[in-house]
Amino acid sequence: MTTEEPIDDIWGGDSDDEPCASADIAKLRRIHNKQGYLDGISRAKESTLQSGFDSGYPEGAQLAIEVGKILGGLQLLASLPAQDPRSEAARQLLSRAKVELHISRVLSWRYFNEDLTLPQDGHRLIVQWKHRVDQLYNSI
């Protein structure tokens, strides 16, 4: 091959006429195609995964903080003296809140938009629990 001849196919060559060489080239082509495909998929997953984590982590952390405030507020009210009517109500609510505000429920698909962002009016479950705790605080 001279330097002036174009290289049309990296798989082509002088030995294409030989059956053994042709089978080896086909096998090598399949291996390289598969490896190239796998490399491309891996790189795409890594970049998508990282960007998804970067955008979702702050929102998830904020949800965790809000759940912590709800549970902490209920725990505070539950620790009031037994003669305070809010104490027993808070204990009952705290027990329910621990189940309903479990991470697997808070991060359920149903509370997010199609693009996995929160609706404008916030996380429906957390908003409901904030309202319950506020009502209990204000019921003196």
Rank of each mutant, 00 (worst) to 15 (best):
I41P: 05
D9W: 13
E59H: 02
G52A: 10
Q62N: 08
L71A: 00
P19Q: 12
G60R: 00
I10D: 10
D8M: 13
A89G: 00
P81H: 04
L28F: 11
V67R: 09
G36D: 12
A90L: 11
S42Y: 07
Q83T: 08
F53C: 02
I7C: 09
G12M: 05
G40Y: 07
G12L: 10
L28W: 07
R43V: 13
A23W: 11
L49N: 03
P19N: 11
L63V: 01
E5R: 13
C20S: 12
G13C: 00
D9M: 12
A61Q: 15
G73V: 06
D14E: 12
G40W: 04
N33G: 15
G68R: 01
S51W: 13
A78P: 08
A26K: 13
I10W: 12
I65Q: 06
D54F: 01
R43A: 15
S87Q: 10
G52E: 08
A82L: 00
S22G: 07
R29A: 05
N33S: 14
Q50C: 00
E18K: 10
Q83I: 10
S22Q: 13
R91A: 01
Q92G: 08
K45R: 13
P19D: 14
P6H: 03
E4S: 15
P58S: 01
S47Y: 02
G56A: 10
R43M: 15
G36S: 12
W11M: 10
G12Q: 14
N33D: 14
T3I: 07
L74S: 00
Q35D: 13
L77H: 04
P6G: 06
L74G: 01
I41V: 15
D24G: 14
A64D: 07
P81A: 06
G68P: 03
C20R: 14
I70K: 00
L93S: 04
R86Y: 03
L94C: 03
G12P: 05
S15V: 04
G73W: 03
S22F: 14
G68Y: 05
S87T: 08
G68A: 05
I70S: 02
Q83S: 13
I41A: 09
A61K: 15
E59A: 04
L63F: 01
K34C: 10
D54T: 09
K69A: 11
T48N: 06
I10T: 07
E18V: 07
K34L: 15
L28K: 13
D8F: 12
R96N: 09
T3L: 12
D39T: 06
A61H: 08
G12D: 14
Y37F: 14
D17A: 03
S15Y: 06
G40K: 08
V67F: 05
S47V: 15
R43E: 15
C20L: 14
A82H: 01
A78Y: 04
D9S: 10
L94V: 05
L71C: 01
E88C: 00
T48M: 13
G73E: 04
S79V: 06
K27D: 04
A44I: 14
Q35G: 03
K27N: 08
Q92N: 13
